Structure formats: structure tokens, C-alpha cells
Amino acid sequence: YSHVINGLKDIDPDLLVFYNYPKQIRASIYSTNMIESFNNVIKRKAKPKAEFPTEQSLDAFIGIQAMSYNDRYFNRIHKGFGQVQDTLESYFE
């Protein structure tokens, strides 16, 4: 499997940076579930409006939805993050 190993050596180091974090949170880091969930909220709430009169009104709508989403999940601790909170805080000191 030398061609596979050589291919792995050529990978940009930033691509696999999530391996530097504790194992408990890696799945949350590389998963897109939270992004997909937010996109579904936007689609569901924008559908009844069908058309926005200006680009600024669409930007404002998405901004309001993002702030609402952040407020709703502000105190939520994502899977695994509660177990390694001290470790993560030490990374950013």
C-alpha cells in the first residue's frame, strides 16, 4: 500500500487538523449535521415567503434566523464537549 501512504503524505496538514482534538468531539467537528439543520430551518421558514423584494430583505431574514438559532442553542453543550471542556479551554489560553 505504498501508493496510499504516499498519497497521505501529500495531504494538506490543515485538512486533518481535527485529529489534534480529543477523540470524544471529533465526530462533531467534521460532521455537517448542525449546518444542515440550520439550512433546513431557513428553507422551511423562507418557503411561505416565496420571493423577497430585495437582496437586503433576504439578508435581513437570514440574519434574523441565524440570531434566533444562536439564541436557542446558546447554552447547549454538543455531544462530547462537556467531557473535554477543560482540555479545550487549555488549547485557547
Rank of each mutant, 00 (worst) to 15 (best):
Y1C: 07
S2T: 09
S2R: 10
S2N: 13
H3I: 04
H3V: 03
V4I: 15
V4G: 03
N6V: 09
N6D: 11
L8G: 02
L8V: 06
L8R: 03
K9P: 01
K9Y: 09
K9V: 15
D10N: 00
D10S: 07
I11A: 12
I11H: 04
D14N: 09
L15Q: 11
L16G: 09
L16I: 13
L16E: 14
F18K: 08
Y19V: 04
N20I: 03
N20Q: 14
Y21N: 02
Y21I: 03
P22E: 04
P22C: 07
P22S: 05
K23H: 10
K23I: 10
Q24R: 05
Q24V: 11
Q24C: 08
I25G: 00
R26T: 03
R26E: 09
A27T: 07
A27L: 12
A27Q: 07
S28Q: 13
S28T: 07
S28P: 04
S28W: 04
S28R: 05
I29A: 07
I29L: 15
I29Q: 01
I29T: 06
I29H: 01
Y30D: 08
Y30S: 12
Y30H: 13
S31D: 14
S31E: 10
T32V: 06
N33G: 10
M34D: 12
I35D: 00
I35Y: 07
S37V: 02
F38L: 04
F38N: 00
N39C: 04
N40S: 07
N40T: 05
V41Y: 01
I42Q: 01
K43V: 12
K43P: 10
K45G: 01
K45I: 04
A46R: 03
P48D: 11
P48Q: 09
P48H: 07
K49V: 04
K49E: 04
K49P: 01
A50K: 15
A50C: 06
A50H: 09
E51Q: 08
E51K: 08
E51C: 02
F52R: 00
F52C: 05
Q56W: 03
Q56I: 00
S57P: 01
L58Y: 14
L58A: 15
D59Q: 12
D59R: 11
A60E: 08
A60S: 10
F61A: 09
F61S: 02
F61H: 05
I62D: 00
I64A: 13
I64N: 13
Q65S: 10
A66T: 07
A66H: 08
M67F: 07
S68N: 15
Y69V: 02
Y69G: 00
N70W: 08
D71G: 11
R72I: 01
R72D: 12
F74M: 14
F74T: 14
F74V: 12
F74P: 00
N75V: 00
N75Q: 03
N75F: 05
N75D: 12
R76L: 04
R76M: 05
R76K: 08
I77S: 08
I77P: 00
I77G: 04
K79Q: 14
K79H: 15
G80S: 12
G82K: 12
Q83Y: 14
V84I: 09
Q85K: 05
Q85C: 02
T87R: 06
T87Y: 02
E89F: 00
E89L: 06
S90W: 13
S90E: 11
Y91W: 15
Y91C: 08
F92V: 09
F92K: 02
